[in-house]
Write a protein that binds this DNA or RNA. Structure first.
Lengths: 224, 224
DNA sequence: GACGAGTTAGACAATGGCGTCTAATTTTAC
DNA sequence: GTAAAATTAGACGCCATTGTCTAACTCGTC
């Protein structure tokens, strides 16, 4: 019960949670076997039953653990949203990169979306919580951040919620298929996808104030 | 071996395929039991093993069946893409509604996306085929259709593939979450989502020629 | 060195699903 | 009506998994 023991137990718990997340995600709840989780975690089966009474308890703990990590990461990324007109395109592009890289295309993001699809019907309240804390919070927060930019007359937006969803959708447009198939985009792909998304978003919602200082003319600015 | 027997057998086969699709989709491959499929299909277990040698054979047959239906539907919807500047906004909106309603948010679309996520790793070639025939074909075909509109100077697009992906992404932006959670959008929601998507798409890529007869000027037309 | 909490390997019963087999029954073809 | 084909219900062996139990083991503390 002293420090060292606590640390040892905690390490075991985390090891089990990580291994269980891995196996549950790859196999789904039904096909995942406790023995395999124990093997991946380098832990005996009994230890798992010692920490989590049964398979379902372990599953719920895993989902909640990943959800907490993902929520914290989303909060962190949201705090990097650009707030001024200076280099708005670059600012939004960087934000889109971080959003994809750390929240949507990363391990936890893929894990949660997959689990929601496979086990969502069996644990409605669990994943309803995720929907509110994850994508729901993202849309709400992004909507408010876009409203701030619109207030500064950098953007012209009639419906902030719609614009927020569209921003996320555009940011994912080029990566959706890859992540659906389990792939992880490279930095170049992340950058390119974000740039494509932000360019289109600004063509639709940007004002002249939003253009880069010395930026080259864009398609939206062709004259004559 | 003549007509009547064929019809009877065929009915059983379809009944089994439908029931199996239902159960596989709800439970996943591992948790789905042959007994439950037999019960839903109102057929004895032995009949299933008679038509499909084993569980995996049945699963593959189900996926291929749904994929064929989905591909035919996608082909049909793609043929309704508008080809002229007349009422382009309405034309694109109707197309987006049909795309969502009949290809993406419908039963088959949700089924395939769910199955790709849950069993994609176990049957790579099966779902790689779907990716090429489904989303891949959608992007390619849409890219060509957008190029036609650009050639008619109704749109200004620098990268057709990107624009195609963005069109699909925008069309789904408002419905993604609902369909992820199993819901089915109403006609009003479909209409509204499509209109939001097309409005933004045309703000980004439309030319004056694309505007409705009495439409207001758009951001993309600023000159100087 | 001894204690004790935690861990481990392995055995164990119970469960449930898969795939096979058989005998009886229904459906279809002629 | 009869024969062939298909279907059905049920029993069966087999195997994997869950969750429990026990005896041995590890490791930090006194």
């Amino acid at each position: 019960m002293t420090g060292h023991t606590q640390r040892g137990q905690c390490a075991k718990r985390m090891s089990i949670l990580d291994a269980a997340a891995d196996v549950f995600c790859r196999q789904g709840f039904a096909a995942a076997s406790i023995d395999e989780i124990a093997a991946v975690a380098c832990v005996s089966r009994q230890t798992i039953y010692n920490h989590y009474r049964e398979k379902e308890t372990l599953f719920v703990a895993v989902v909640e653990d990943v959800m907490n990590r993902a929520n914290a990461m989303l909060f962190s990324v949201l705090s990097t949203f650009p707030d001024g007109a200076d280099d708005l395109e670059d600012g939004l592009t960087g934000f889109a990169v971080r959003l994809n890289k750390n929240c949507i295309c990363n391990h936890d993001g893929k894990f949660l979306r997959k689990l929601v699809q496979t086990e969502g019907e069996r644990y409605p309240h669990l994943f309803e919580g995720w929907r509110q804390q994850g994508p729901g919070k993202l849309t709400t927060a992004l909507s408010a951040l876009l409203a701030r930019l619109a207030h500064n007359q950098v953007l012209v937006i009639d419906d902030f919620d719609v614009a927020a969803r569209q921003f996320v959708a555009l940011a994912n447009a080029d990566l959706q298929m890859m992540t659906l198939f389990g792939g992880t985009p490279t930095n170049e792909e992340l950058e390119k996808a974000a740039r494509n998304a932000v360019r289109t978003f600004l063509k639709a919602y940007g004002t002249p104030k939003a253009e880069k200082a010395g930026g080259e003319p864009q398609l939206a600015t062709i004259s004559g």
